[in-house]
């Protein structure tokens, strides 16, 4: 039976699962990476995701326009981000904890709205697959990599885009400076609050998008609590990726591929208790990080509010 795991079908299946499962993590983790890079830990990703998932679904359902759904998800994510930004920047709230508040609020609010506005679990016809000409015809792998829905492509495009913004633009430089040494950045004329407002709202927007990718692109349903802890995993993956876009990609793929693998292990009837199979992705993520990590530089100002001196 174990030999079946090394078949082409299983291999391709695991790859495909990995790509799909990684999509929401990529959006949310890269958004979170930006806010952490500027020194703000947002633990409320889960709440932003699920509200995003709800609004994307609801707006797509009533307007019939998926892109409006995406916009709505980004909008509500941005609003949650704005609230988080005000609480963090203006009121200096302890970041790890305010995030828990936003998480609870998002989970409760999305469920409440779902009950009052929709009431029952329904489907929506989500983003269709788009086969990229030529590339999708590549034997074996073409179909997996180049025949996905638009949000999957977008999620993976976020990685080089984030890398470019972070390392090749003045904005990226400002973000890194604010997260590394806000006092110095301030002296150089960078507005620390402005940069942080930007990154926290960006993080919220991306989390909203992550939610949308679940509810109108990958699963095409909304149900209460459907993010099931993915927002917290997304935060964890930022640490895995050491605040680097490619690292985050690596983390998201590792976690998702192992999750795909554990499903195949169960499907092929390999005799491991399902509980142990289920814990594999969590366990391996810790293990890999333990074995590989050497000197990671945490953004120095992470979780620390900024106060102008004097």
């Amino acid at each position: 039976m174990i030999s079946n795991l090394f078949s082409m079908t299983a291999f391709l299946g695991i790859l495909a699962s990995g790509i799909r499962l990684a999509t929401p993590y990529l959006f949310a983790s890269i958004g979170e990476m930006f806010s952490q890079r500027s020194g703000v830990l947002n633990l409320g990703v889960e709440g932003q995701m699920i509200l995003g998932a709800f609004f994307a679904f609801y707006v797509a359902k009533i307007t019939g326009n998926l892109w409006l759904g995406v916009l709505a998800a980004m909008g509500v994510g941005a609003l949650m981000g704005l609230a988080m930004a005000i609480v963090t920047i203006e009121l200096h709230a302890t970041q790890g904890i305010s995030g828990i508040g936003f998480y609870l609020f998002g989970v409760g609010m999305s469920n409440l709205l779902f009950q009052t506005l929709i009431g029952t679990v329904e489907t929506v016809s989500g983003f269709p697959r788009i086969a990229i000409p030529l590339l999708s015809k590549i034997p074996i792998f073409g179909d997996i990599f180049f025949n996905q829905n638009i949000l999957v492509y977008l999620a993976f495009l976020m990685v080089p885009l984030a890398w470019f913004i972070l390392y090749k633009t003045t904005l990226g430089l400002k973000i890194r400076a604010v997260g590394e040494n806000p006092q110095a950045a301030d002296t150089l004329g960078v507005s620390v609050p402005k940069v942080r407002y930007f990154t926290i709202i960006l993080g919220g927007t991306m989390s909203g998008l992550a939610g949308a990718s679940l509810s109108i692109a990958l699963l095409n349903v909304f149900q209460q609590g459907m993010t099931a802890g993915q927002g917290f995993i997304a935060v964890a993956l930022v640490y895995f990726g050491a605040w680097k876009p490619w690292g985050v990609l690596g983390g998201a793929l590792l976690f998702s591929l192992v999750n795909g693998l554990q499903l195949w292990i169960q499907v092929l009837g390999i005799p491991i208790p399902s509980e142990f199979s289920t814990m594999m992705p969590y366990f391996l993520t810790i293990l890999v990080l333990t074995l590989t990590v050497s000197k990671v530089k945490t953004p120095s100002a992470l979780t620390k509010p900024f106060e102008r001196e004097g």
């Binding site: 079908t9 299983a10 391709l12 299946g13 495909a16 699962s17 799909r20 499962l21 929401p24 679940l214 990958l218 699963l219 349903v221 149900q223 609590g225 459907m226 099931a228 802890g229 993915q230 999750n259 795909g260 499903l263 195949w264 169960q266 499907v267 092929l268 009837g269 399902s274 509980e275 289920t278 814990m279």
Partner: peptide, 25 residues
């Protein structure tokens, strides 16, 4: 007949992925 238990009552995404895995198999 292949049985998967995903270890959760709430994780729709993983349930969907389990279904995809069955379909692929």
């Amino acid at each position: 007949v292949r049985v998967t238990y995903i270890g959760s009552f709430g994780d729709i995404a993983l349930a969907a992925e389990a279904a995809e895995t069955h379909l692929a198999a």
